[in-house]
Design a protein around this nucleic acid. Sequence first.
DNA 1: ACCACCGGGACAACCCGTTCCT
DNA 2: AGGAACGGGTTGTCCCGGTGGT
Lengths: 201, 201, 201, 201
Amino acid sequence: MQQRSEETRQHILVAAADLFSKNGFDATGVAEICRGAGISKGAFYHHFTSKHTVFLVLLNDWLAGLQTSLSDFPKEDATIPASLVRMAGLMDFVFETARGRLPIFLEFWLQASRDAQVWGSAIQPYHEFQAYFASMIEKGIAEGSIQPVDPQQAARAIVSLAMGVLLQGLLDPQAADWGQVARESIQFLINGIAITGKKEG
Amino acid sequence: MQQRSEETRQHILVAAADLFSKNGFDATGVAEICRGAGISKGAFYHHFTSKHTVFLVLLNDWLAGLQTSLSDFPKEDATIPASLVRMAGLMDFVFETARGRLPIFLEFWLQASRDAQVWGSAIQPYHEFQAYFASMIEKGIAEGSIQPVDPQQAARAIVSLAMGVLLQGLLDPQAADWGQVARESIQFLINGIAITGKKEG
Amino acid sequence: MQQRSEETRQHILVAAADLFSKNGFDATGVAEICRGAGISKGAFYHHFTSKHTVFLVLLNDWLAGLQTSLSDFPKEDATIPASLVRMAGLMDFVFETARGRLPIFLEFWLQASRDAQVWGSAIQPYHEFQAYFASMIEKGIAEGSIQPVDPQQAARAIVSLAMGVLLQGLLDPQAADWGQVARESIQFLINGIAITGKKEG
Amino acid sequence: MQQRSEETRQHILVAAADLFSKNGFDATGVAEICRGAGISKGAFYHHFTSKHTVFLVLLNDWLAGLQTSLSDFPKEDATIPASLVRMAGLMDFVFETARGRLPIFLEFWLQASRDAQVWGSAIQPYHEFQAYFASMIEKGIAEGSIQPVDPQQAARAIVSLAMGVLLQGLLDPQAADWGQVARESIQFLINGIAITGKKEG
DNA sequence: ACCACCGGGACAACCCGTTCCT
DNA sequence: AGGAACGGGTTGTCCCGGTGGT
């Protein structure tokens, strides 16, 4: 029965994501995941070839979701700066959906910094984000709404700011409304490169 | 002999920092550290009660160094925005001194997100940084060089940007000169909250 | 396959009993038990949660055997004293079945003196023995074959004598035929509390 | 200074006896003993060549004390049976002086059952006790106060009873006044081999 | 095809008793 | 007498393959 199989697979992924987030990848045993998913070790290794594989699947699922969110984002604003600011709202989405399992991002990054395969999968989206923002900024410069800055550097600033907020929200979730911090911080940054003398938003 | 003892201790710390950076905390065995430090396990456990303790010492040493750098930073600029921009140069210091062992920061953050004790040690400096920046921004508002923004939010933006650059430089060191990215990004951000229409720096 | 599983379990118990007897509980490593049982550590920890658990199972198995022996003991004698004397023959059974692995009793007692759980399991049977003997003595007093002594104290004397013989036979097996010592000693003791002036048996 | 040295030695012995009793020989670390004695490991190994040596010294000290008690015992009774009964009072002495550290006897016995050297030291006194009692019983038979039993067997009965009471008092100190149990039990036993038709005591 | 039990063996951290040097 | 260093050994856990029922 393939539906039951798919359910089991999802149970494993959910349980693994929870445990990886709570206790970390290394500290989480396969037995623990099986207990969490209500299955046996035999079932686990029937669905996944290793614990590491589960991790990669989790990572790719998340990255796929990210790509979808970005490409689904409506492009309807009057000016590029306005559009950039509005995109900061996506951070709210991230914080809400990942509520409680943010630490797994750190696991992703950590493994990416050491495992070439993971690195390839995990780092590529950032390059795409950056290219995306850079092209927006170029457009902004062309339309006269943004100062003639280096688009790559400006795009790096945006991505860095987003990751920094994410990291802080992850380490110290109680300290602030990090979604709001994201929006306001991006606003500041955009103000710094936009052409209008008046504040945006 | 206490000098020899202190030397051994340092050997352990150095070897541990190397290995934690290269392979990660969990993947690094005590035996490996001992081999790296040229000592026996007995000596290791004579100096540290656990592998975790070594980690904490490493963390605290680094944080202490950071605090020192910050408090030693000369305050000689004409205006607050100029001073803030100049402080971005500290990131160069971080990248240079930590060259090759940046991944250990991820380990710090990861453990901080799970271990209350580590969290306490690791998160406090960020609060202090933020408070420090917030007070600078207040002063800037008072002296008329900064717009009347919420100082806390602006400070969070600065800290987030710095951490984001650090994180990116850690994950993708080859992609850019991250020290320069730090300086320029901060410049953009400061432009966004400063009062003068002209760029600083 | 569950038969194979049960066999493995028994192999472990037998090997552990041997080694605990020969070298002691602490001096026996799990690796040694595994070697003795011809299995791996994975198998060991699949069947038992800890070395201590094996010990407890061994203890309980032995105690259960003792209880069975006692309750299976035929009660067919004319008088209580005769019955008591005849029960001393059970000691022969103990010495024979435990031939070569008596020291494990010392381990039992030693652990019982320190571990509350072991103590509970190990001490209860003695209380039951004592209660059993006390009730026999009461009956003997009632039927006029035993002097009006304190049944509890007399029962304690019997149990103590049995344990003392066991202990001596354990420490110095060559010095005497301890089964015989048990029978004759009990005879002496019974003579001391019986009413008939003539020796029993 | 040799007085200080001797004091240190005693501190070690006292601390070791406490810890051996409380936690057992194997579970007690040399470091623990040093902490308990308020000294360093260097000092420990200055006074004793090994942990095992400490154990042997403890054992021999105790055995020497036993021998002294026995040889100091006044022999003033009218008849042998009376004398034997009175000697049971020595058990009170044992229980009182060893209060709280009885489990170390089990350690003694356990090690004796495995280590030939310990065995030699520990078992000899029992042989002497037995010989001593056997000779008393022979005298009793000669003087007509004891039945013509096998003196060796009777002596074994006495020693076994004493050891059994000691063992029980060790395992279950709260269950009874074991000194009293010792006295009454011996009384029963002596009654069983004495010649007078009337009860002793 | 799926799953459960059973087993394998490498290896982790930690601690041990002991020696050596001062 | 002090304390740094040694290195072997401990238990327990890990991830993972077989094998056999459902």
